[in-house]
Amino acid sequence: MNNTLVDVKNVTKDYRAGKVIVHALRGLDLAIHEGDFMSIVGPSGSGKTTLLNLVGALDTATSGEVSVFGNDLSTMGRRRRADLRLKSLGFVFQAYNLIPVLTARENVEFVLELQGVGSERRDIAFSTLDDLGMGDLADRQPNELSGGQQQRVAVARAVASRPRLVLADEPTANLDSENAEALLQMMRHLRDEQAMTFVFSTHDPLVVSYASRVVTLRDGRVVSDELKDPTSDAHEAGN
């Protein structure tokens, strides 16, 4: 239906742990389309993190092809992959992923600076935080924020430069359900308003209910890939 942003073709990923080889992904195929709000679910150890790391150009596949925005990652060196991550992808990690000595605004600003945004980055950082309901707390350091607030700052940092694709590995794992819902609603809102594409992994059925597409992994393979009608989502009413 849409543009394909990411194409994962018959990918395997082996990890060597001592003498044991772990087959984390075993011939996985997946296409991520523009506008997806995709949830990747599956039991622990099924390969969710491994898949997100490959798509996020943080790691390379053992075999198969991963192409992101038309770039075959296997042909890209460390530097170019870092550049791709910085300029075109947004990341939200589980927890504790802000620079502790910088305020919320400075955290967002720092990444904008790395991305080469000029003096307007200060305003962009603030307005992004403000959009996520963090305007009043923009000058606090992470240790003065709750876990949910910290994750909102992390989302703000990931989306401030409007990347086409945002990857989030269990972004709500350390949040209570109220905060988890709030975070999901925010990401959902950004996807609707800014035409960004989100892919997140989760265990949480509540989180899954926000997704427009749910991909289930088991033993390193996709076992189901369902499209849901976002408008039929019960939680939308409360948004």
Binding site: G56, A82, R85, L86, K87, Y96, L114
Partner: peptide, 16 residues
């Protein structure tokens, strides 16, 4: 190390 790993993941260069 964790903080640096996070920044490297975001695409920050080791030079910085």
């Amino acid at each position: 190390t964790h903080e640096f790993g996070m920044l490297l993941s975001l695409g920050c260069g080791p030079g910085r």
